[in-house]
Write a protein that binds this DNA or RNA. Structure first.
Length: 572
RNA sequence: GCGCCCGUAGCUCAACUGGAUAGAGCAUCGGCCUUCUAAGCCGAGGGUUACAGGUUCAAGUCCUGUCGGGCGUACCA
């Protein structure tokens, strides 16, 4: 149940009645406990419009709304806030086993999400984590809400750097073991190829020839290319699997997939009169984009030598997503440096009619990862930390911690907990921040296990499970409701009812940190409840009520964490 | 130069998109384990929300300007 929406509708109706025209209730969580559970702020704006006293308006609104069975106290406070206290009966009936944690949307859409999209020429590094985990979370959330999600891994599998890589691969062909060894570490392989390219002119010539051969469809070169792509993809897949990222080979649709369509895109733009020629290149000029001299900035779709660019590829991808995949929405989880690029692509796509008015096309950007010295990770010169190294370190540190906290556990159990906790911490570090700013990569911060981190949420969960085990609780025998009498129980109960609204927001805005904030608040509320309200030792009715609160909290934490792509453990 | 993004506690970040006394975590200091897991709980200190104006019942949030930072800005992706 979306509680806020419910209140917004109920109070909004009252507001509109008083106004004589549609008016918004503007319901939010109350800023402090003495102001109740929720507050409606719409009366002030309405009073302004009607040129009347806000408190008077608020009083009329209260008279005209029916919150029977939902609220047991409504008050006017300050300049005209309407404060609402939810009734215990409402909390009890809302938090019961047959109410689903998340309701499906009545308006299911087809949503394409473009995320992860690593460059296959190199190995995935820590900078790829952001897009990968955010996209993974967004797709899980949208699926949970009942939408049809189509994942698109727009990998970089085409371009001039492959000439150099394929040439180097050819050189090693006769020495199978050497080739295998080098390809096992793509970072090493890339550097070796680059070194040859820079130092050996003959090699560089062959590399350039291979680029041409590749682009013109030479069968042998294509075969080698396919081999390389397969190997590189399997590197990615190993990381996806470790991190439990829901991307498979079927979701891969790289740049090369659009090659055959590029000519058609350009022709189509031409037929629609959008194309003009400038310095030999074919471009779309848009009034809203200017270059550094204040002159119109082109979106170049075909170079003067006849070649195509990533703008062309992306236009083709847009067309594919809306025409072939029948998307209602297409979300791009790609870093901030590409803001202008996507603004241009989206504008052209709209002009060309690839996307209609009621179809959504949005770029969800985020800042780049910087090294400790504040400088960007160079993806050309190496120096970027391999994602695999981060994951190794996460497992090691978590293993040490588990070992020190629970020395009695066997190694296998410790290892399995270390994986869930370590990777959870890494993912949460990225998911919990909304910054469009750049941010500094820091091992200790990334691998922290204290405070507002995934392990805190996992700990809350395992504490609840441990409680059930100790109490030998059988929920099939508990059919009573909850009674939230203490402040801690009440806060926890209200918090549980905000889950739906939070998840819907994440689906709408593609902002996983909202879910992180929510789950942290939920876990904090639970911890306070746990400290103040004994569960197993309480008399039967109270014990059952508290057990039900625990159960709902555990279920919400587990589902919420799973939507973040983070696991839970029974013990830790 | 122009465009976009950003500037919140010592550090990393929130603030439900204009609402009441700007909140968390880390770090620092003090308390709480013979009662359900101390990866926890309770408490303290720490702020002119970069700066200056403006808009209004109400501004961290909107507008203008200044300073500081990042990114982008014609055939790489």
């Amino acid at each position: 149940m979306n509680l806020r929406k419910l209140l917004d509708e109920r109070i909004g109706r009252g507001m509109s009645k008083v106004s004589g025209a549609p008016a918004l209730a503007v319901v939010t969580r109350s800023s402090r406990p003495e102001f109740g559970d929720f507050q409606a702020n719409g009366a002030m704006a309405l009073a302004k419009k009607l040129k009347r006293s806000p408190r008077e308006i608020a009083a009329q609104v209260i008279d005209s709304i029916d919150l029977n069975g939902i609220a047991d106290k409504i008050e006017i406070a300050g300049p005209g806030f309407i404060n609402i206290w939810l009734s215990e009966a409402f909390l009890s009936s809302s938090i019961c086993a047959n109410n689903p944690l998340i309701e499906k949307t009545p308006q299911a859409q087809t949503v394409v999400v473009d995320y992860s999209s690593p460059n296959l020429a190199k190995e995935m590094h820590v900078g790829h984590l952001r897009s990968t985990v955010i996209g993974d979370c967004v797709t899980r959330v949208l699926s949970q809400l009942g939408h049809t999600v189509i994942r698109q891994n727009h990998v970089g599998d085409w371009g001039t750097q492959f000439g150099m890589l394929l040439t180097h691969m050819d050189e090693l062909k006769d020495r199978k073991s050497a080739q295998k060894e080098e390809l096992a570490d793509l970072e090493f392989f890339y550097r070796a190829a680059k070194k040859r390219f820079d130092s050996d002119p003959e090699f560089a010539d062959r590399a350039r020839a291979n680029v041409v051969a590749l682009q013109s469809g030479n069968v042998d070169v294509l075969h080698t290319w396919q081999q390389f792509i397969d190997i590189s993809l399997s590197h990615c897949e190993a990381l996806y699997e470790r991190l439990d990222i829901q991307l498979t080979r079927a979701d891969v649709r790289g740049e090369s997939a659009y090659n055959d369509d590029l000519k058609s895109v350009v022709e189509d733009l031409d037929s629609k009169g959008l194309l003009s020629e400038s310095n030999g290149a074919r471009c779309v000029f848009l009034d809203e984009f200017k270059n550094k001299d204040g002159e119109p900035l082109p979106v170049i779709v075909q170079k003067s030598d006849g070649g195509y660019l990533y703008a062309t590829t992306d236009l083709s991808a847009v067309r594919h997503r809306f025409n072939k995949l029948r998307a209602d929405r297409a979300l791009y989880i790609v870093g901030a440096p590409q803001i202008l690029h996507f603004q241009q692509i989206f504008a052209v796509a709209r002009l060309a009619g690839y996307v209609t008015q009621n179809q959504e096309l949005t770029h969800h950007s985020f800042g780049s990862m910087l090294a400790k010295d504040g400088k960007p990770f160079s993806t050309r010169k190496g120096g970027a930390e391999k994602l695999a190294n981060l994951l190794d370190e996460a497992e090691e540190r978590a293993f040490e911690l588990v070992s020190s906290k629970s020395p009695e556990m066997n190694t296998a159990a410790k290892k399995s907990i270390a994986r869930v906790v370590g990777f959870g911490a890494v993912k949460y570090a990225d998911l919990s921040k909304n910054r469009t700013n750049d941010y500094i990569f820091d091992w200790d911060q990334m691998l922290s296990f204290d405070g507002n981190t995934a392990p805190y949420l996992q700990y809350a969960y395992s504490r609840i499970k441990s409680l059930f085990k100790r109490g030998e609780v059988d929920f099939s025998k508990i059919d009573s409701g909850i009674s939230a009498q203490s402040a801690q129980e009440h806060q926890l109960a209200v918090c549980l009812l905000v889950f739906q609204e939070t998840v819907e927001s994440v689906g709408r805005e593609a902002l996983p940190h909202l879910l992180c904030n929510y789950l942290y608040e939920l876990a904090s509320n639970y911890m306070r409840f746990y400290e103040h309200c004994p569960v197993l030792s309480a008399e039967e009715d109270l014990r059952n009520s508290r057990l039900l609160l625990c159960k709902r909290t555990a279920d919400t934490l587990k589902l919420g964490l799973s939507l973040l792509g983070i696991g839970t453990v029974e013990r830790m």
